[in-house]
Design a binder for these strands. Structure first.
Length: 683
RNA sequence: UGCGCUGUAGAGCAGCGGUCAGCUCGGGGGGCUCAUAAUCCUCAGGUCACAGGUUCGAAUCCUGUCAGCGCUACCA
């Protein structure tokens, strides 16, 4: 960091949460808590810093959700924007502004941004054929088209991906495509779009990222960027045929909007404009340090695409760092908004009132900084009870209580210091620097642990000096010990501020202490002798098993509800009638599985060898989730033998095992029944 | 399929070529009693995912394998 330029101010952004659901602990741990720690720290250093957030409110999923619920997209985003904004405020995420991309300023800003690039010839225009729904008179986004997957025959595949077999699709690949809007078959129609030629920026990206940020970007971020650049960048469309979003501000672009990933990051700029008339210095002055806090899914957009946009536009600075975190799981499973598998911030705030700092603490100490991590309620409880309560809360409490007990709530004078005092003070002096250095290099977990070590130092100091024993013989010595212990509390109130702002304020109140800057944290003499302090109040309280069990119960209910929902899935509707000839074309035989093994690097596939009576052949079958290879060897099954061979993961599959499938996806073998010989004809 | 990140004591992490592999929580033992049965000291616990290789020396570098997660272009 030493040979880096010195910055005059900071622009800190945190990923714009998508306004189709509330905020959950994954968002917090990955993005908002670390960003908030960072900016609180900068503010304490008297840095000129703005902290930008806002809701990302465009994009197809929101229009789909609106359609499903029979309301407008604006209704959807209004609802979630409100919930999100309020929960951030209550939680103490200290945004300077929390804006939204459906706002007027944003539409103007994004529009102007596009126009400037457009006029400078920064886009490529391409005409292509896309599906158009004649009934509703609009082009269809890929997610608005369903049809039969050409790979697995699943009938509800989307235009971009088949959720059954996972294959990435083009809408035009679908067999019998249908419009989600009208149910009609859409027609292909020509449409014009604008593309950002990322490929042209490849040399520049190489220089800027691969050489310029080799050492200061996190390894996961750098690796991901390198991977993208090395694979070769392609032009990306920046417009869509949709009516929800920022209108494309170009003649002849009616019915088109900016694609959501193009407009969303511009939202950071729009929010800054709303915040201050002086916004340009935060975005265009090279002496401003721009930092994006994001999750790992957003790396490419913030490290490649948005920088290319900024570069192409020409007048903006580039991010100095993009500290992306990995993901947080919940009780061993991926957090999922749609499956309601989450701890929602607004619910947490209701269930645990006044405990913002507990969650901040747990999420910071278990932050997924280098790899995915797991949040469990048990861990939440343990960290609260045996760290926050036992180490930090207890130290402050015992110091305050002792001061009241022996000195009527006034800071006693420190007499002559002995070696142990001086040693302790020397250690104390080191903490602020260490914590600062960790925060500056985005190691918040480490910084927090260091802060806790200061409380540990305090506990050890008290225990070693035993004021409760010494008092009868040497009250003056006790005065010294408590004076120094109180100074530790004061220092804690300063260095804990970025992590635990609510508790830091509580300590300050108890100590009857004003606010201090980070630079004051090495002073060590904040409390003069005679200074009155307030009555002790507990910083943290124990969380009992009942509260934890209630939360776990809540999750179990969610899981049950999800399973019930799955089981309730309706039986598929019948297919259209076929003639006997069609049926008799199929050659189905009884056969026996003689070998079975898992196909490497797949979840679902088993490689089976089947004795069909006619021959022995290899069949690759997607049943690994339900059957172990060892359990099915020797089992008799029905097999379609005259199916054209197909390669799966490089293995040629010669036929298909007949399976019955429940609506929830559970599979069952279709068995010929006792006495059937291999090769028996099934008809 | 390709690429990226990750894999270290029961749990969460640090170390990333060279003193006995460290820290926090949990567990065992002891001390203290000011404190929310909290604190303090101490002990036990690891063939550093696996297999090869480079090196005087590897958790640390290289190759391969396995596992988790993500990305692979319209997904926010």
């Amino acid at each position: 960091m030493s040979d880096k330029p010195v910055y005059k101010r900071y622009t800190v952004t945190s990923a714009l949460p998508y306004a189709n659901g509330p905020i959950h602990i994954g968002h917090l741990a990955g993005v908002y808590v670390p960003a908030d720690i960072y900016v609180r720290f900068l503010r304490m250093n008297d840095e000129d810093v703005i902290f930008i957030g806002g809701s990302d409110e465009h994009g197809v999923p929101i229009t789909i959700k609106a359609l499903q619920q029979g309301v407008t997209p604006q209704d959807i985003v209004d609802r979630y924007h409100g919930i999100i904004k309020k929960s951030f405020e209550d939680f103490g995420i200290s945004f300077d502004i929390y804006s939204r991309t459906s706002g007027k300023t944003h539409h103007e800003t994004a529009s102007a941004f596009f126009r400037k690039m457009f006029e400078a010839g920064q886009f490529i225009e391409k005409v292509s054929e896309q599906y158009f729904d004649e009934a509703t008179g609009q082009f269809l986004a890929d997610r608005y088209i369903t049809g039969t997957c050409p790979h697995c025959g699943f009938e509800k595949a989307y235009g971009d991906q088949c959720e059954k077999c996972g294959t990435t699709l083009n809408a035009t690949d679908l067999i019998e495509p249908k419009s989600v809007l009208s149910g009609n078959q859409p027609v292909l129609r020509e449409t014009r779009h604008w593309f950002l030629p990322l490929d042209q920026y490849e040399p520049w990206l190489r220089e800027w990222i691969l050489e310029g940020h080799k050492d200061d970007w996190k390894i996961n971020v750098y690796g991901q960027c390198k991977s993208w650049i090395d694979q070769g960048l392609q032009p990306r469309a920046v417009t869509r045929d949709l009516d929800w979003g920022v209108k494309v501000p170009v003649a002849g672009a009616d019915g088109k909007v900016l694609y959501v990933w193009f407009d969303a990051p511009i939202g950071y700029i729009s929010a800054t404009r709303e915040l201050t008339a002086d916004w340009e210095k935060y975005w265009k002055d090279p002496e401003t340090k721009l930092v994006h806090f994001i999750g790992k899914d957003n790396i490419v957009f913030h490290c490649i695409i948005f920088p290319v946009m900024l570069k192409a536009e020409g007048s903006y600075i580039l991010p100095e760092n993009v500290p992306a975190n990995e993901f947080l799981n919940l009780e061993g499973e991926k957090i999922s908004t749609s499956r309601n598998w989450a701890v929602w911030l607004h619910e947490y705030l209701e269930d645990f009132p006044g405990k913002q700092d507990v969650l901040r603490y747990v999420l910071t100490s278990a932050a997924p900084e280098t790899k995915d991590n797991d949040f469990t309620w048990k861990d939440f409880q343990t960290r609260n009870n045996s760290e926050l309560v036992a180490i930090l809360g207890n130290f402050v409490n015992r110091t305050i209580v002792l001061t009241h007990k022996y000195f009527e709530g006034r800071v006693p004078a420190a007499a002559a210091l002995n070696d142990s005092d001086n040693l302790m003070l020397e250690e104390m002096r080191l903490f602020p620097g260490r914590i600062a250095s960790s925060i500056q290099s985005y190691r918040f977990r480490e910084a927090l642990a260091e802060m806790m070590n200061l409380a540990r130092l305090g506990n050890r100091y008290l225990t070693e000096n035993e004021p409760w024993k010494v008092y009868t013989s040497d009250p003056v010595r006790v005065g010294t010990v408590l004076n120094l212990s109180l100074q530790i509390c004061a220092q804690l109130s300063i260095v804990a501020e970025p992590f635990l702002p609510f508790s830091a304020a509580k300590i300050r109140h108890t100590l009857n202490l004003g606010s201090y800057k980070w630079a004051d944290s090495t002073r060590l003499n904040w409390l003069p002798a005679g200074h009155p302090i307030n009555e002790p109040e507990l910083l943290f309280e124990k969380i009992d098993d009942g509260a934890i069990e209630a939360q776990v119960e809540k999750l179990l209910n969610t899981r049950k509800a999800n399973e019930a929902l799955q089981a309730k899935a309706p039986v598929k509707p019948g297919k259209e009638a076929i003639g006997f000839e069609d049926f008799s074309k199929m050659d189905i035989r009884a056969g026996t599985i003689v070998e079975a093994e898992k196909v490497a690097k797949t979840d679902k596939l088993l490689k089976l060898t089947i004795d069909t009576g006619l021959d022995r052949r290899t069949v690759v079958s997607g049943i690994a989730k339900f059957f172990n290879p060892a359990d099915i060897i020797g089992r008799q099954v029905c097999i379609l033998v005259n199916l054209a061979p197909r390669k799966l993961k490089g293995i040629e599959s010669q036929g298909m095992i007949l399976m019955a499938e429940n609506p929830d996806g559970t599979l069952f073998f279709v068995t010929p029944g006792e006495g059937a010989v291999n090769g028996a004809d099934v008809k």
